[in-house]
Simulated assay, not measured.
Amino acid sequence: MDERLFAALASWLEHRAVVLASVVAAQGATPRRRGSRMLVTAASSLGSIGGGLAEARVLDAARGLLESTSTQASIEIDLGGGAQSAGVCGGRMRIALRRWSTQDLERARAIRDLLAGGDRVVLGADDLGAPGVEDLARPDVRLLIVGAGHCGAALCELAARLEFDIHVFDARGECLEQPAFASAHTHAGDVGVLGSLLEGRRDVQAVLLNRDFHADVAALEVLCARPPRFLGMLGSRRRIGEVRKALPGCREVLRGLVAPVGLDIDAETPHEIAVSILAQLIAERRHY
């Protein structure tokens, strides 16, 4: 979310002041954890710090800050179930509010560009509007989909809503012309292009959804030279075993291969399979 959020911040600041609301502390059961952020303008917002009455109070406080001469404020959200609390979850959250204006445009663009380049960015107290607090803004994880068949198309469609930097490879260029891949970066031709997609500092989650055994082997020969953070492959257990046997030189890397990829939810259709894979990818990237 940080990559999209700071790109929007840099764009919006060209026309209006914007409040950055950040969860800087969370205890007990809360809807969002530390590091969750949202943007608030006088008429709109982007992102979420949890929804419900808690978020409504944050929106009111942020818009109050926009009308004031101050640049920062904070709001405590009590979810303990009392008369003045915002919920009954049982936890507490502290939200820092920082009003950004046109004089902050250069900093917003710098953060945007660093995240777009795959770098993490330390957000200081002045960025957050929280004295003594630092946080880390993270670029989107790259989702590398290898195979542009039915499952690859379904995975790309659903992942487009989940803040991934999506790249799709298939040797067959005509397969990449489907509408499902319109929002992704697509690559056709020689499988060696996969190596360039593993370069840089951005975390990569690679999922093999190829149509045949030979395509799996060719892709894994490239991916094993520079293993991504997550490597998963779809297929029957027999096929997976045959792929492993065909790559004796990759045995050590393939110990970490998640195959068959996806949570076991008895998925059958392409979109059900995509849901099972995305649930696993989300769980994995929470630890990055």
Results as ranks from 00 to 15, higher is better:
Leu155Pro: 01
Glu106Pro: 07
Leu208Val: 13
Glu134Val: 12
Ala188Thr: 13
Ala61Trp: 06
Gly152Tyr: 00
Glu268Met: 08
Glu163Cys: 09
Cys175Trp: 04
Leu20Thr: 01
Val58Gly: 00
Ala180Met: 10
Glu14Trp: 10
Ala26Cys: 07
Leu209Cys: 08
Gly52Lys: 02
Leu162Ala: 05
Ala25Glu: 15
Ala180Phe: 03
Gly149Tyr: 03
Arg226Gly: 08
Gly118Asn: 09
Gly81Arg: 07
Gly149Thr: 03
Pro179Leu: 11
Pro131Arg: 08
Ala10Ser: 10
Ile111Leu: 12
Arg161Asp: 09
His150Cys: 06
Glu268Lys: 07
Arg286Phe: 09
Lys245Glu: 15
Ala130Pro: 00
Val121Asp: 06
Ala62Glu: 05
Asp266Met: 14
Pro260Phe: 11
Gly149Val: 11
Met233Val: 10
Arg4Leu: 15
Gln103Leu: 13
Arg226Ser: 15
Asp104Gly: 07
Glu268Asn: 12
Ala267Thr: 11
Ala17Leu: 11
Asp113Tyr: 10
Gly149Arg: 04
Glu242Lys: 09
Asp127Tyr: 10
Val19Ser: 05
Glu14Asn: 07
Gly147Pro: 00
Arg107Trp: 07
Ser36Tyr: 04
Gly52Ala: 13
Asp170Asn: 08
Cys250Glu: 06
Ala86Ile: 02
Leu263Ala: 03
Phe6Asn: 04
Gly235Asp: 02
Arg32Trp: 09
Ser74Phe: 12
Leu144Val: 11
Arg98Cys: 15
Arg99Cys: 10
Gly52Val: 05
Arg98Val: 12
Ala26Trp: 01
Leu9Trp: 06
Trp12Asp: 05
Gly249Val: 09
Ala83Ser: 15
Ile166Val: 12
Leu123Ser: 03
Val133Gly: 06
Met93Glu: 06
Asp170Thr: 04
Met233Pro: 01
Arg107Ser: 07
Ala8Leu: 15
Leu59Ser: 04
Arg34Glu: 15
Val275Leu: 14
Leu162Met: 14
Ile166Thr: 06
Glu67Asn: 13
Gly149Glu: 05
Trp100Ser: 09
Arg285Cys: 11
Gly149Met: 06
Leu53Ser: 14
Asp266Ala: 12
Ser22Asn: 09
Val243Ala: 08
Glu55Val: 08
Gly147Val: 02
Asp104Leu: 03
Ile49Ser: 00
Ala171Lys: 10
Pro31Asn: 05
Asp135Ala: 11
Gly200His: 14
Ala180Val: 12
Ser48Trp: 01
Val121Trp: 09
Arg285Ala: 05
Ala137Gln: 06
Gly35Pro: 03
Gly189Glu: 09
Leu281Val: 08
Leu46Asn: 03
Gly200Tyr: 11
Asp127Gln: 07
Leu79Val: 06
Pro248Ala: 11
Met93His: 01
Gly64Asp: 07
Ala25Lys: 12
Gly80Lys: 08
Leu136Arg: 10
Asp203Ile: 12
Asp113Phe: 13
Asp266Cys: 15
Ala26Lys: 00
Glu284Leu: 07
Ile166Asp: 00
